[in-house]
């Protein structure tokens, strides 16, 4: 910007600043009322905690409920195979246990022992 243009701009902005500082009390009061209304509106907006957490505006109560149901369903779905897996492991332990086979092998002996005790 040329020097004379800069000077012109400075002169104009100084005149505008002088005008704004000399506004009537009535105008300033009306502007103050408008500002307070706008600030109250902004405060109401920011007081919503779910908005403070950055949750988008479109997420309504219904949206939150849907999300909660989905989270529960997914957690149940993920938890179920873990229990089955545990049960399968227990079954494998029973089947592979050496002691169990010993019991089955000596089953006839234990039966004879039980009947002989009863006879005594």
């Amino acid at each position: 910007m040329k020097e004379n243009e800069r000077e012109l701009v400075t002169r104009i902005t100084a005149a505008l600043d002088a005008e704004t500082s000399g506004m009537s009390r009535q105008t300033l009061e009306r502007l103050g009322t408008m500002r307070r209304n706008a600030v109250a509106l902004a405060e109401r907006k920011t007081s919503r905690s779910w908005r403070r957490l950055g949750v988008p505006q479109w997420v309504s109560a219904g949206g939150c409920a849907t999300i909660a149901v989905v989270v529960i369903a997914v957690s149940i779905w993920l938890a179920a195979p873990r229990q089955q897996e545990g049960r399968q492991v227990e079954d494998v332990e029973i089947l592979t246990s050496r002691e169990q086979f010993d019991v089955y092998e000596d089953l006839e002996f234990y039966r004879w022992l039980a009947t002989s005790r009863d006879e005594r």
Partner: peptide, 16 residues
């Protein structure tokens, strides 16, 4: 509140 300061700063120029 910050928004109050901001609006107080711009309101006269905005009106003009």
């Amino acid at each position: 509140m910050a928004i109050n300061h901001f609006l107080a700063d711009v309101e006269r120029r905005a009106f003009r």
